[in-house]
Computed example of a mutant assay.
Amino acid sequence: MMTKLNKLIQLFEQKFVAHPWHGVTLGENAPNEVKAYIEINPTDQIKYEIDKPSGHIFIDRPQKYSNIVPALYGFLPQTYCDTLVADYCMEKSGKTGIVGDADPLDIIVISERNIDRGDILVNCIPVGGFRMIDGGEADDKIIAVLKDDQAYGKMKNIDEIPSLVLDRIKHFFLTYKSNPNADGSDKKVEITDTYGKEEALKVINLSHQDYLNKYGNVNTDFADTLKALLG
């Protein structure tokens, strides 16, 4: 039975591309080293986003203003921002009434190299993050460095990242939705603090647990279902 089951799983893996959110794992060494799915790169003037049901990339919208994402931007597979992430955000920020944004955990990956395409997987090392709240929703942004990057790859914590690089990333997140003609009263995005590697790993683990609570263990459930069908 197990031989047939393993063979069938192997055929599925060979014939079909894995869903970037559900079918790709965080990585064998997660959360210290993770696999990130990149939706947008610094040359994009379009906001690309994953279509959750299908796993394909689609155009969410053209970027309205001059802001361009300053590094590779995407999400961590098999993560979900729900109750655990929201509770941790409230604990650390001292705010109340925060909920998860019901999306995968966002990540921005810093590299010295010019990578001019999205819809790719990259191995990276989390070094910290921004505790961001968007319209009352926990919307953490994990900061990572590309594994083996010649300039950033050996950096282990966020305090090793040049402050100007972090300021550029922070400015993007705080302003990319802002209307330049508004008086500021419409601003709903805030970054309450910047945290280091230890908290980043905590947020990743919580978001993975939120994912398991919502969707279960996709790989185990798939194998169990096939096993039941095979009798």
Rank of each mutant, 00 (worst) to 15 (best):
G74F: 01
L76V: 10
P77T: 12
P77Y: 01
Y80N: 10
C81Y: 06
L84S: 11
V85K: 07
A86N: 04
C89V: 07
M90W: 06
M90C: 08
S93M: 03
G94E: 05
G94H: 07
T96R: 14
G97L: 02
G97I: 09
G97C: 08
V99P: 00
D106C: 00
I108P: 09
I108Y: 03
V109R: 02
R117T: 14
R117F: 07
D119P: 03
D119Y: 11
I120N: 07
I120P: 09
L121I: 01
V122I: 07
V127D: 06
G129A: 09
R131L: 15
M132T: 03
G135V: 10
A138N: 05
D139N: 11
D140L: 06
K141P: 04
V145T: 03
K147L: 14
K147S: 14
D148L: 11
Q150E: 15
Q150R: 15
A151C: 13
Y152P: 06
Y152V: 01
K154M: 15
M155W: 06
K156P: 05
N157F: 01
D159Q: 14
D159E: 15
E160K: 11
E160Y: 06
P162D: 05
P162T: 10
S163E: 15
V165Q: 11
L166F: 03
D167L: 10
K170I: 01
F172N: 09
F173A: 00
L174Q: 04
T175W: 09
Y176S: 05
Y176M: 04
K177M: 09
